[in-house]
Design a protein around this nucleic acid. Structure first.
Length: 292
DNA sequence: ACGAATCCTGGGCA
DNA sequence: ATGCCCAGGATTC
């Protein structure tokens, strides 16, 4: 149990942290009376918004500032993204104007990212948040006590792998219990470092590997490729994205979301936006999610 | 290759 | 109150 003093540092608030953490990119953040509190990997952040800055408190203090910058991808210049995307397709301009503070996030731990998104099929964000909270409370290792709140890490994969397949049903996981446990066992089979190795496998090879895991289809694979493995090519096509793309691409109207149409959407993004694909995708998805 | 049914659960809604 | 629909899908037939 770490009882050390948190590191406090300022970050220019030229982005909308609340928008980032409420757009379904992460599931372990919440607003509190004092601001926002979130856990990323084995690190805790508490963020207060002051006049010019976010004041961030972090535990543990080592590498905390770097971790925060990585989490919100602060190395990327937002205005450059905006102009690049709008230049590629002016139809994005109103969405970007409404979502100018939105940042694409980056998970510290791709495995935690995978298991979190295994909770998402046919689900909604409030419920997913509750499921993951109960999962961590029940099976996670102790992390910190901070502000009189006790925090735990996301469960270790071997812990999940050893559970019976229905163990997560009492936590409200429904049929997704089996997906998480079976995926944990599959990951154990592949050995440590397997997920990390996908970071250098290339987008298509990594995706081909991911969809072999139980409970992982194209959409969840793309979520992990986008937020956990850092691939610019990723476009998770869910119901929101599918509806949006049917309006944008006439050739999709009247069709259904299949492997072929999913690929059509990917190709279209890559042709039009190139390395800015993941950002363009994020504005469109969030615009639909927020009903803009 | 495509379409449809099935799977847990909780909230919104008529 | 009760039933139906849908929510960041995957799998099976």
């Amino acid at each position: 149990m770490n009882q050390a003093t948190p590191l406090t540092f300022p970050v220019p608030n030229r982005f909308d942290l609340h928008l980032c953490i409420s757009a379904g990119q992460v599931f372990r953040w919440q607003s509190s009376s004092t601001g926002f509190t979130g856990i990323s990997g084995s690190r805790l952040f508490q963020v207060r918004d002051s006049h010019e800055n976010y004041t961030v408190q972090a535990l543990p203090s080592e590498h905390a500032e770097t971790a925060f910058r990585d989490l919100f991808r602060l190395e990327t210049d937002l205005p450059s993204v905006h102009s690049a995307v709008i230049q590629a397709d002016p139809r994005w301009e109103p969405w970007i104007r409404e979502l100018s503070g939105l940042r694409l996030m980056r998970w510290e731990d791709p495995e935690e990212c995978l298991f979190s998104f295994l909770c998402t099929p046919a689900n909604n964000i409030p419920r997913i948040t509750g499921m993951i909270q109960r999962l961590c409370e029940t099976y996670g290792e102790p992390l910190f006590s901070f502000d009189s709140t006790f925090h735990r890490a996301f469960p270790q994969i071997p812990t999940l792998a050893d559970l019976p397949e229905d163990a997560l049903r009492p936590l409200g996981f429904g049929y997704r219990s089996r997906s998480l446990i079976q995926a944990a066992r599959a990951l154990r089979e592949r050995g440590p470092g397997w997920m990390e190795s996908l970071k250098s496998a290339g987008y298509w090879d990594a995706k081909r590997e991911l969809v072999r895991l139980p409970g992982v289809g194209a959409k969840i694979a793309d979520c992990v490729l986008l937020l956990g493995l850092d691939y610019w090519e990723s476009v998770p096509v869910d119901t929101h994205m599918w509806q949006a793309m049917q309006k944008l691409l006439p050739e999709l109207q009247g069709k259904s979301l299949t492997e072929k149409t999913y690929r059509q959407i990917l190709d279209w993004f890559h042709d039009r936006f190139g390395v800015w694909t993941r950002w363009a995708q994020q504005y469109l998805f969030t615009a639909r999610l927020k009903k803009l």
